[in-house]
Lab assay of single mutants.
Amino acid sequence: SEEELIEKAEKLRKEFEFIWNGIRFIIRENADEIRRFEELLKE
């Protein structure tokens, strides 16, 4: 039914948001290391 689809979509959206926030947190935490690594690659 349509309601089930909406519920599934909402659940997926929440899971995606949770994963995305996790990725963003990891990137933020490691931003300095990532930048340093990029500098090494440029040399």
Rank of each mutant, 00 (worst) to 15 (best):
E17H: 08
K11L: 11
I26S: 00
I27G: 01
E15V: 15
E39G: 02
F25I: 02
R28D: 05
I19K: 01
E7G: 07
R28C: 15
I6N: 04
K8R: 06
I34G: 04
R13A: 10
D32Q: 09
L5F: 06
K14S: 08
F25G: 01
I6M: 07
L41W: 13
F37P: 01
R24L: 06
D32K: 10
I6H: 11
K11C: 15
L40Y: 07
F18I: 06
L40F: 08
L40I: 07
A31V: 07
R36M: 07
R13E: 04
E43H: 10
E15T: 15
E43D: 08
E38R: 12
L40H: 03
E3G: 08
I26A: 00
E4G: 11
R35M: 07
N30I: 15
K14I: 12
E2T: 11
R13N: 03
R28M: 06
E3A: 10
I6R: 10
I23K: 01
R13F: 12
R28K: 05
E10Q: 10
I23P: 00
L40N: 02
F37E: 01
K42D: 06
W20Q: 00
R24S: 05
F25D: 03
R13H: 09
N30R: 12
K42P: 02
I26H: 01
F18A: 05
E33L: 15
L41Y: 05
K8P: 07
E3Y: 06
E33Y: 14
I34V: 02
E33I: 15
I23L: 10
R24G: 02
R28A: 07
I23N: 01
F18D: 01
L41G: 01
I34Q: 02
E39H: 08
E7S: 12
W20L: 05
E10M: 11
L40S: 02
E10C: 15
A31M: 12
I6T: 08
K8S: 05
E17T: 12
A31T: 07
E17L: 13
E29H: 10
E7P: 08
W20G: 00
R36C: 13
E43G: 10
E39V: 06
K42H: 09
I34D: 02
I27E: 00
F18M: 05
E39P: 01
E2A: 11
K42L: 10
E39N: 04
R13I: 11
I26N: 00
E29N: 07
S1G: 06
L12N: 04
I34N: 02
E15S: 12
K42W: 13
L40P: 00
R36T: 03
R35F: 09
L40A: 02
